[in-house]
Computed example of a mutant assay.
Amino acid sequence: MRRIWTLPMLLVLCGAVVAAGLILRGSPGEAAVLLLVFVLLAGMNSPLIFPRSIGAQEAQRRSAADGRPVVFWRPGCTYCMRLRIRLGRSACQAHWVNIWSDPAGAAAVRAANDETVPTVVVAGRPHTNPDPGWVREQLSPPA
């Protein structure tokens, strides 16, 4: 669980150190702006912007029941962030699995494509880094 917070915490720590140096040099305004940028980067790389993750087995069980896609992701992945942001509010309709906190999820992705994320599983078929528009279509109920 600690591994998923390593990058965000490093970003905040680095930002604090650089901001402290700027404050000592007499630039508190620059320090505040720089610290804000580092905190925003940390937030974007944290698991906070993603829907709550569940285990791979539970996600696969739920997907079999409701037909929704399973999205395997990891914190710090720019492609995962792109997918999450482009899905918008509909992202919560998918079942999200953080491969850094779920060994079964990491194994499932490794079996599909050498641990490349995001991997979206729809109807039992894995799709590596699919187009967000296509994933949004998979989230929509059939007409």
Rank of each mutant, 00 (worst) to 15 (best):
A20F: 13
G21N: 00
L22E: 08
L22I: 06
I23Q: 08
L24Q: 12
L24G: 03
R25I: 05
R25D: 14
P28N: 03
P28I: 04
G29H: 13
E30Q: 07
A31Q: 12
A31F: 10
A31N: 09
A32T: 09
V33N: 08
V37S: 01
V37M: 03
L41I: 00
A42G: 00
A42R: 02
G43Q: 12
M44I: 10
M44D: 10
S46L: 01
P47G: 05
I49T: 08
F50E: 02
P51N: 11
R52S: 06
S53C: 04
I54M: 15
G55P: 08
A56Q: 05
Q57L: 14
Q60T: 10
Q60F: 10
Q60R: 12
R62F: 01
S63N: 10
S63I: 06
S63C: 08
A65L: 15
D66T: 02
D66Q: 06
G67E: 00
G67F: 07
R68L: 11
V71R: 05
V71H: 02
V71L: 13
W73P: 02
W73H: 03
W73V: 09
R74H: 11
R74A: 07
P75N: 07
C77T: 01
T78D: 13
T78Y: 15
Y79Q: 14
C80M: 12
C80I: 11
M81D: 14
R84W: 02
R84F: 06
R84Q: 13
I85L: 14
L87D: 07
G88H: 02
A91N: 05
A91S: 11
C92D: 12
Q93K: 14
Q93V: 04
A94Y: 04
H95I: 02
H95D: 06
V97W: 10
N98D: 15
N98V: 11
I99P: 00
W100A: 07
S101E: 14
